[in-house]
Amino acid sequence: MTAPVLRSLAGTLCLLALAGCAGEQSAFFPRGAEAERIETLFWVMTIAGSVIFIGVVVATGVAMLGGQRVRRVLAGERFIAGAGIAFPVAALSILLVAGFLVMRAGAAGEDAEGGLRIAVSGERWWWRVTYLGEDGTQIESANELHLPVGEPVTLELTTADVIHSFWAPQLAGKLDMIPGRINRLTLTATEPGVSRGQCAEYCGGAHAFMSFQVVAQPPEDFADWMANEAADAPAPQGESEARGAELFRQAGCGACHTVRGAGANGRIGPDLTHVGSRRSLAAATLPNDAEAFARWITDNQHIKPENQMPPYTIFDEAELEDLSNYLESLK
């Protein structure tokens, strides 16, 4: 297929236009089966469209500037019937069938029974991610999706409040999360790596900050990660972390957040059991380090206005450091 050629073309184009293109959230660099099919379709349509567009421009130019004889050819209903009816009918028919066939290809993943299932719930403005075991176990995480490469994974998309839309452009097209419904999206990551996704349906307030990361891993790495994720939070090591854990308990953080094994079982905010091991904080808004934790705790309403966490300015510097150290240690 011409896809590799086109992709390198896309790469050049991107580099040219994007100067240091991160590409983590770009549909031009597909890393999933569905996104790859769509990318091919995109280039086919783009090239065909460009040819048609140039044709129209040339025809207009000729109609304006051409010699009498050429212009006379263009000046009749026969030309309209050919260029305006016959040609579009042919082109559109081919394109429509091609579109249908690409859609049908989506059925392959959907048929895969017994694969990994992950429930993703859109919340204002973060993502609740729950890995559903075949035996009914549920392991909750947030704002980060881990996938084994090469295996079809079914996402069960729901929402806790308004309509959101799950979009990880490198993997697949988007699918909305609608109150009262479960939409199922099948993804197959084709190569390991980290990509980024974002809510694509305007959901009010901090819609711009509702992102997530997708980590595609070789199946064995994924299994390791999963084993760690399923375990309880590690116990605090050292004095600072221990003080942080106590602050976490005293300040009532557990009313909203869960830290499995530490007695915190709130269901309102993101699960923090292994928050220290994630690649980012606050739905891919901040990097994941102690400093960012401290900033988030005190200043979250400026970092991500209208988010549902109250600002916690009640801690002094030392307390904040302890608390951040503790949270960062939750690997």
């Binding site: 009918v89 429509l96 249908f100 859609m103 049908r104 989506g106 059925a107 959907e110 099948t186």
Partner: peptide, 21 residues
């Protein structure tokens, strides 16, 4: 007629009730 043909075409090519996602 063309539009009707286009609309009917899907039923020939695709399963009627699948989401295909």
């Amino acid at each position: 007629l063309l539009a009707m043909l286009y609309a009917a075409l899907g039923a020939v090519l695709l399963p009627a009730c699948a989401q295909l996602r």
